[in-house]
């Protein structure tokens, strides 16, 4: 089944929002999410493909409402819970 991320050729997303002089991250928590994901992949907790899969498994309405790094956070939380990395608690 096609997932919500598979948007090539879809209509309705409107004009681009181009931000001049955009910083790499808009908040410190975005940077921490980026680093957490990189560390968890490097540490073998999950693969990059499992991470992409976890992003794509988001409910479509939730995916579309979330910002880029909110999607990442959702995927990390999903995988950390599924892998029981922090135990069952």
């Amino acid at each position: 089944m096609s997932r919500v991320n598979d948007v090539g050729g879809q209509t309705g997303f409107g004009a681009l929002r181009i931000e001049a002089g955009e910083p790499p991250f808009h908040a410190d928590w975005e940077a921490r999410v980026y680093a957490l994901n990189m560390a968890l992949v490097r540490g073998g907790v999950y693969t990059l493909d499992e991470f992409r899969d976890a992003v794509e498994r988001m409910a479509p309405a939730e995916y579309l409402a979330a910002s880029y790094y909110e999607r990442w956070l959702h995927a990390i939380e999903t995988l950390v819970a599924e892998r029981k990395v922090l135990g069952d608690a």
């Binding site: 990059l48 493909d49 992409r52």
Partner: peptide, 8 residues
Amino acid sequence: LADDRATG
């Protein structure tokens, strides 16, 4: 294959 790697 990404499809396989995504399943672990």
